[in-house]
Design a protein around this nucleic acid. Structure first.
Lengths: 119, 119
DNA sequence: CTGTATCCGTAGGGATACTG
DNA sequence: CAGTATCCCTACGGATACAG
């Protein structure tokens, strides 16, 4: 698990990793990845897990993550259609990091609120 | 390091942790936090580290992170003015998680590019 | 159920000029 | 050096209606 040098640098504007970073850290990307890390889910279930997301944005977010190879879309052509979204192995790696980030925020929330309230 | 239950839930639209999450995962928030995690920096130095950021957005991002208690702004009232931005202990926790997220993306980039290119 | 299509407002963000 | 102030634009994202 050494931190070897990689041919990518997110600090450089033109690096392709920037685009993936923006998908992952987009408003709904973070929450969608985290919502999928517990277990796969269908469209409707995801909408319920990620409170406040619209159909449009969920659809758009899933497409972006799928295009990044982080999410797998599994279609069962039945009637009514049954579609399930699953994290790819790559997606699981990223989702775990996202989860850790969220947890780190929780740990910090009390401080945040103290600062906000000037206590 | 147990994952105990906390009174925050980022999946709920009204949870105050959402706002902090959005600051941290904003387009420039991620990069600014990561840029500060190596070592404190001044305004101009940050601009150089985070390739592509505008003065306006750097200023705005730093203010948000400062308001969240993640960044400390240290002013030395000299001429010319000398201002240094430092991560708070809380900010270091979050910045580490952000760093880990970025590294996880690097590990995934080859897959991403394979998917994109359809190889 | 699982989405797409359309309309539309807002605010995120870039460029530039200016100040202490 | 370290920002603020403006102008301005577009693209993110919400609401609604419709489709397979």
């Amino acid at each position: 698990m050494s931190q070897e040098s990689v041919p990518f640098d997110v600090f450089t504007a033109m690096c392709p990793s920037r685009e993936v970073l923006e998908h992952v850290t987009s408003r709904w990307g973070v929450l969608t990845l985290a919502a999928l890390s517990s277990e796969p889910a269908r469209f409707g279930e995801l909408r319920r897990r990620v409170d406040g997301i619209s159909e449009k944005m969920l659809s758009q977010t899933l497409k972006a993550l799928e295009g990044d190879g982080l999410v797998d879309r599994r279609v069962h052509s039945t009637l009514p259609p049954h579609v399930e979204y699953v994290l790819t192995p790559a997606g699981q790696q990223v989702a775990e990091a996202v989860q850790a980030l969220i947890v780190s925020l929780y740990g910090v929330m009390p401080d945040v609120m103290r600062v906000r309230d000037g206590v």
